[in-house]
Amino acid sequence: MLDSYFLWLEATRFSAWVREDPSIFVFPAVLAAHTIGMALVVGVGAALDLRILGVAPHVPIVEMKRFFPAMWMGLWLNVASGLVLLVAYPTKALTNPVFYVKLTLIAVALRILKSVRRRMVLVAGAHPAPMPARLRLLAVASLACWAGAITAGRLLAYTYTRLMADR
């Protein structure tokens, strides 16, 4: 049932263009954008987690929120580039369980980030402020989720069973 949908999507001009255009500014550029977005989201997220875990203790933690726009930029870049990659190879991603593992880990990491953002305001004031155990736990979980999401993402290239619906 889904196959007919994949077939239709893969036959659209946009999907074929992203997949087949030989220019370095099409498919490779989308992949490069997806990597930059990842580095921004996970990079800034990891910097925040490390701060919570006690690295750079004299950094006022609330001020870390000034770096969040870079993170949102990366996130939207990756939603956009990820959708383009998905339209180019829908069967490849959606028939692979690892893809759903990746999406779940990203969702959990973003949910943790929301929680961290709410709690980090509460530790404002004197710094170096002692970090509540709960916040530290969230930071560890966040790092683990991002590392897992990256690994799952990388494994997509090795674990897919079907590349396209018609083969």
Binding site: T35, M38, A39, L40, V42, G43, V44, G45, A46, A47, L50, F67, A70, W146, A147, I150, T151, G153, R154, L155
Partner: peptide, 16 residues
């Protein structure tokens, strides 16, 4: 995977 995780640490710390 490790190379990508390293990349995020690098860009995260140095980029911030």
């Amino acid at each position: 995977s490790l190379h990508f995780i390293g990349l995020c640490l690098l860009l995260g710390a140095i980029g911030v």
